[in-house]
């Protein structure tokens, strides 16, 4: 398939997923009512409130977080030259979550909490890369240290939960498992002022990632400055991940599944892989979120549970079936 056709198809899939998410959800509403509420919202109308205050913000959040996580996956994979790297497997998400949990327990909300999330992700990226640069690590060891860091940080989160008051714990647990349902006005501000601009910067980094994926030396010989490029991109992706955690908790494996699928479809060239993964990441998270609301209705599952199961299965199959020489 030619690339414009692929992008058109991805856009259509995204539109379809949005429509599906709008029409279905925890509460049954008829499509006629929903259209009515969309076009002529009347104040006080229940359907209008549901559509404008719950479903649409939720759709927007899922799209942005999905695109952001997929993009972060692509960037981490290219920079670390490791097809299994992504915010979740590297422990970056867990770092953000620890920051956020601390903030919640300390009674911080809004900007201070977001800053704690950012700090948490930045620190865990530095730790993983620090470990990796101590010795020349193989790609598996890098992922292993990321996963171990992730365990460590999750245990710290559990520790904080176990000594905190129960009221804080429940809301934190729901959120930490991945929750797109209640992006407050604070979350919207995070998206607009930090996540969006950083995503835009990263979107333009296709050719830098192409070079970096060939290694630092080859980057130099193609006229690029690997240290500067890596520095900017790592800070940007850690902050994007931190922002995503602040908005919606830990949603794992989006950055692993989506780029792998897209490499099969648009190819490995990062100039195309980044935008296609962003589009597909939005659709993927949106569909997962819709599914999480429908599967056990009226109980709503955290979306992180769905992506975690899908991603975990994918990870296992990938390690078990793929010929190592093909992986790398």
């Amino acid at each position: 398939m030619k690339h414009p056709a692929v992008f058109l198809l991805l856009a259509l899939i995204l539109l379809a997923s949005m429509a599906l998410a709008l029409l279905t959800g925890g509460t049954s509403l008829t499509s006629a009512h929903i259209f009515e509420a969309l076009i002529r919202p009347e104040p006080g109308d229940l359907t209008a409130t549901l559509v404008w205050e719950l479903r649409l913000p939720r759709i927007a959040t899922a799209c942005i977080v999905g695109a952001a996580l997929a993009q972060c996956g692509v960037v981490f994979q290219a920079i670390l030259r490791n097809p299994l790297a992504e915010p979740y497997t590297l422990g970056v998400s867990a770092g953000g979550a620890l920051g956020a949990t601390l903030a919640i327990i300390l009674g911080l909300a809004g900007l201070p909490m977001v800053v704690m999330c950012f700090a948490g992700s930045m620190i865990s990226v530095s730790v993983v890369l620090g470990i990796a640069s101590l010795r020349q690590f193989s790609s598996t060891t890098l992922i292993l240290s990321g996963v171990i860091l992730s365990f460590l940080l999750s245990s710290l989160v559990m520790f904080i939960f176990s000594v905190a008051s129960s009221r804080d714990v429940h809301s934190s647990i729901m959120w930490i498992m991945g929750d797109l349902s209640s992006p407050g006005p604070g979350a919207m501000r995070i998206m607009i002022f930090t996540v969006f601009p950083l995503m835009a910067v990263t979107l333009c980094a296709g050719r830098d990632l192409n070079m970096l994926s060939l290694g630092d030396e080859k980057t130099y010989h193609l006229g690029g400055n690997a240290r500067v490029m890596k520095g900017i991109l790592l800070v940007a992706t850690s902050l994007i991940t931190g922002g995503c955690v602040a908005i919606s908790g830990i949603i794992g494996f989006v950055g692993l599944l989506v780029p792998h699928l897209m490499r099969k479809i648009t190819g490995a060239d990062h100039r195309l892989l980044i935008p296609s993964s962003m589009l597909a990441g939005s659709s993927f998270l949106l569909l997962c979120d819709t599914f999480s609301q429908l599967v056990l209705r009226p109980i709503e599952l955290p979306v992180g549970v769905i992506t975690g199961m899908l991603g975990g299965l994918f990870f296992l199959v990938y390690i078990a079936l793929v010929n190592p020489s093909e992986v790398i």
Binding site: Q77, A78, R81, N82, P83, S139, R207, N210, M211, S213, L214, G215, K218, L222, G223, G224, R263, G267, A268, D269, I328
Partner: peptide
Amino acid sequence: QWVPFPYTVEEFVLMGRYP
């Protein structure tokens, strides 16, 4: 050169034009 991603020959060679 260890190339961790499945670039096509054309995509890979085209990177030589980046400078």
